[in-house]
Amino acid sequence: MSAGTIHGVGLGPGDPELMSIRADRLVRSARHVAYFRKAGRPGRARRIVQGMLRPDAVEFAMEYPVTTEIALEDPAYNAALSGFYTNVTTRLIALAETGQDVVVLCEGDPFFYGSFMHLHARLQGVVPVSVVPAITGMSAAWTATGVPITWGDDVMTVLTGTMPEAELTSRMADADAIVVMKLGRNLPKIRAALDRAGKLDRAWLIECASMEAERAVPLAEAGECPVPYFSIVVVHGQGRRP
C-alpha cells in the first residue's frame, strides 16, 4: 500500500475568501483534518474553515503543551515543544502509512513563522508531504492601512517582537519598510524601539487583518491596551516614486 500524503495547507490571513482554489479544494475533500490549537480553545485555523469540512471528516486537534507559560529562553520551553511536535508527527505518519491523506490546516502561509514547519522537518523523507502556500498575514495587514508597503528600491525588513529591544532598534533604524510580527506582550518594547529609531510616527498597528474584527490605527494613537494575538505593526517605505 502506498503511503498517503500530509498536506500543509495555508489558509491565508483569516478571511476564507482569501484562500487559494487549491486550499479550498483540499479542505473540502479531506477525510482527515489536523490543526493546531491552544488547550481549551477551538483554534484559529479551525475557525477559518467552519462549515467547509465534509460531514464525515475525522479531526485531530494538536494542542500545544505550552504557549506563553514558560519563557522562550527557558530550555524547558524548547523541550516541551520538541516532544510535542515529535508526538503529533508520529501520529500523522501512522495515518499516512495506512494510505490516508491528511490535511494540516495552517494559518497564513505554512512556511512563514508557522508551526507546520516543525512537522515538515520531521516528515520529510518519511512519508510524502506537500505544502500549499498562501497570502500572509503581513500582506493583509499593510493592505488594511490603504498604503503600499514599499516603493521603488525600498528594502522590507521583517522582525519579531520577541527580539531584544536594542536589536530591534538597530534593525529598525537601518530599515526602509518594516513589518513586526509576534506582538502580544512585546508591544511596549516594540513601541519604544520604534521611537528610538525615529519611526514611531510612521508606524501602524493592525489587529485581525482581513477578519471581521479588523482594526488599523497609527501605533502612536493605539493606546496601551493588550492587542490580539493576530496583530502586526508595519512602517511603510518612503522610496523612489515616478
Rank of each mutant, 00 (worst) to 15 (best):
S2E: 14
G10R: 02
P16C: 01
I21F: 09
R22M: 06
A23N: 05
D24V: 09
R25F: 00
S29C: 04
R31K: 14
A39C: 02
G43T: 08
R44P: 00
R44S: 11
A45Q: 08
V49H: 01
Q50W: 03
G51L: 03
G51K: 04
M52V: 00
M52E: 06
L53K: 10
R54M: 06
D56W: 05
V58E: 12
E59G: 02
F60W: 11
Y64D: 12
T67K: 04
T67H: 14
T67E: 12
E69T: 12
E69Q: 14
A71N: 06
P75S: 09
A76F: 07
A76M: 07
A76P: 11
Y77F: 15
N78T: 12
A79E: 15
A79D: 15
L81G: 05
G83M: 03
Y85E: 10
Y85M: 05
N87A: 14
N87G: 02
R91I: 00
R91K: 13
L92G: 10
A96Y: 04
Q100N: 15
Q100W: 01
D101E: 08
V102I: 14
V104N: 01
L105I: 09
P110N: 00
F111H: 08
F112D: 03
S115P: 07
S115Q: 07
F116N: 02
H120V: 04
H120K: 02
L123Q: 04
Q124T: 14
V127L: 05
V127Q: 03
V129F: 00
S130P: 00
V132M: 00
P133E: 03
T136E: 10
G137Q: 06
A140Q: 11
T143R: 11
G146F: 12
P148F: 08
P148G: 09
I149G: 04
I149V: 10
W151K: 11
D154F: 08
V155I: 11
V155M: 07
M156H: 06
T157F: 03
T162W: 01
E165Q: 15
E165R: 12
A166E: 15
A166C: 03
E167M: 10
S170M: 11
S170V: 12
A177I: 04
I178T: 02
V180E: 02
K182L: 07
K182H: 05
L183N: 07
R185P: 01
R185V: 12
N186H: 15
L187S: 00
P188Q: 04
I190G: 10
I190C: 13
R191P: 11
R191Q: 13
R191Y: 01
R191A: 14
A192S: 15
R196I: 04
A203K: 12
W204V: 02
L205I: 11
L205E: 14
L205G: 08
A209G: 14
A209L: 11
S210E: 13
V217T: 15
A222V: 11
E224R: 11
P226I: 05
V227Q: 13
P228S: 03
S231F: 06
H236C: 09
R240T: 15
